[in-house]
Design a protein around this nucleic acid. Structure first.
Length: 428
RNA sequence: CGGGACGUAGCGCAGCUUGGUAGCGCGCAGCGUUCGGGACGCUGAGGUCGCGGGUUCAAAUCCCGCCGUCCCGACCA
């Protein structure tokens, strides 16, 4: 029943939360998971936040196929070398061996740039600012729910530009205005944006930038990446355009992705020994109302009042009318991280008030009917800020300063890279 | 792929050393009592003991092989 303590066994805590809060469960093929409705609703919240920002920065969504002819993958040397160990290949289909094997995309640069070659002739065709929401497959050694699954969901943006400067600006715009902003404002996760070391760079990239966040086990999580790809893919796939000077030139590329791993980041940043704590901006249920009653007479009084109050609150409200005891329901919703709980029983009704409990602090307070909507709204705001503030304090307490890093110079192979916690490095 | 642990009811486990009727807790179903922080009683359903082979009159238990899961490492959104 009770969760393992974070301090005692963080991996066990994580797995148990994912399972008992009904976010996801392992599926039958190794390393794959079933994302359950509550977990998927959290992912949909992240998708909305990211998709809104992708569109606000001028991008459009499109969709490329799952299969990539294997020959195509081989054209960019670093890229194929980097991904070869983890690609899944279809060699048999339709009852016979395929003449040319099909790679299940581990990422789509190859297919997309082979296609861009047909779409780009002139500087007038640029830039191409496209994104897709898709599933990809990477045969990783050690799968972990949400953090590293064989198949995962993500968005991958692929843009083509006229100049290096424009492409570099695009890479950083996505990093800051899309990813960092979504993490800060919606997921309430304060994060470091930075540049990866050469050894951690995306295969085929000139430069890789990431957002890294500190989890409560004091390990860093690579929360997304944004790559400046230079002309590498344009050269490999023959994407040339006539530039303003009348000369043929290869286009400059970026790619960037954020995956279902972000759900894991939310769990591991905010969760406590009682379970999840979801930032209100992301929570599928922001307010849960737990009616309390004994007799049928009390029941109808309380349920009527609960329905009325629910309608007056401007938030995602759920009334838990199951035949369970109140204490069971309190734990149920705390485990699922619902920010605000309203308890309403005969004692409350007699006093024209309800009892409001905040997941952030665990505190309860009596709130008169007339002030409920305003108080709930304020509590949701406080929770959104409070979670981010707690995460920021935790990060500050466990992040090494440049002075600390200087003393550990030997550990820093590349001054461009960064480490949050030198003793354990980057977890993902 | 290297090191470690483990596969017995939906979940968590005992039983294995010393072979002989497959058990416990939680959960699940029905009924009753309960209900302001994870309720209790009674009744009941639920099992090819991971898979395959071997030894034996007899295998959850002993032997061999395989598969899978979890943790630590290298790789990774």
């Amino acid at each position: 029943m009770a969760l393992p303590k974070q301090d005692e066994d963080f991996p066990a805590w994580y797995q148990e939360v994912v399972k008992t809060a009904e976010l996801a469960e392992p599926s039958l093929a190794r390393g794959t998971m079933v994302i359950r409705p509550y977990g998927y609703a959290i992912w949909e919240g992240i998708q909305r936040a990211v998709d809104d920002r992708i569109k606000a920065t001028g991008h459009q969504n499109l969709y490329f196929p799952l299969f990539i002819p294997s020959r195509l993958l081989e054209k960019e040397a670093e890229h194929v070398e980097g991904f070869a160990p983890e690609v899944a290949v279809v060699t048999h289909a339709g009852g016979s061996d395929l003449e040319e094997p099909l790679v299940v995309r581990p990422t789509s640069e190859t297919l997309i740039w082979a296609t861009y070659a047909k779409w780009i002739q002139s500087y007038r065709d640029l830039p191409l600012l496209y994104n897709q929401w898709a599933n990809v497959v990477r045969w990783e050694m050690r799968p972990r729910m949400f953090l590293r699954t064989t198949e995962f969901l993500w968005q991958e943006g692929h843009t083509a530009h006229e100049t290096e400067q424009e492409a570099v600006e695009e890479t950083l715009r996505i990093l800051n205005e899309v990813y960092l902003d979504a993490y800060e404002e919606v997921m309430a996760i304060p994060a470091h944006a930075g540049r990866k070391s050469a050894s951690e760079r995306f295969p085929g990239a000139v430069e890789t930038y990431t957002v890294e966040a500190l989890m409560r086990d004091r390990k860093s999580l690579q929360a997304c990446t944004s790559h400046y790809l230079g002309q590498n893919f344009a050269k490999a796939y023959g994407v040339r355009f006539l530039n303003r000077g009348g000369e043929q030139e290869e286009a400059y590329a970026t790619s960037w992705g954020l995956s279902t791993r972000a759900v894991g980041a939310v769990i591991m940043t905010h969760g406590d020994d009682q379970g999840l704590r979801l930032p209100p901006a992301l929570a599928p249920v922001q307010v849960v109302i737990v009616p309390i009653f004994r007799s049928d007479e009390e029941r109808s009084r309380v349920m009527e009042a609960a329905a009325k109050l629910a309608g007056g609150i401007d938030a995602r409200v759920h009334v838990d009318d199951r035949e369970e005891r109140p204490g069971f329901k309190f734990n149920h919703w705390e485990l699922r991280g619902v920010p605000v709980r309203i308890e309403i029983g005969p004692r409350d009704l007699d006093a024209d008030q309800v009892t409001v409990a905040a997941r952030l602090t665990g505190e309860k307070e009596a709130v008169p009917f007339g002030q409920l909507a305003a108080r709930v709204g304020a509590l949701l705001d406080e929770t959104q800020r409070g979670l981010r503030e707690q995460a920021r304090e935790f990060r500050e307490a466990h992040t090494f300063r440049p002075a600390d890093l200087a003393e550990m110079g030997a550990l820093l192979k590349d001054p461009g890279g960064f480490m949050l916690t030198p003793w354990c490095g980057s977890e993902e």
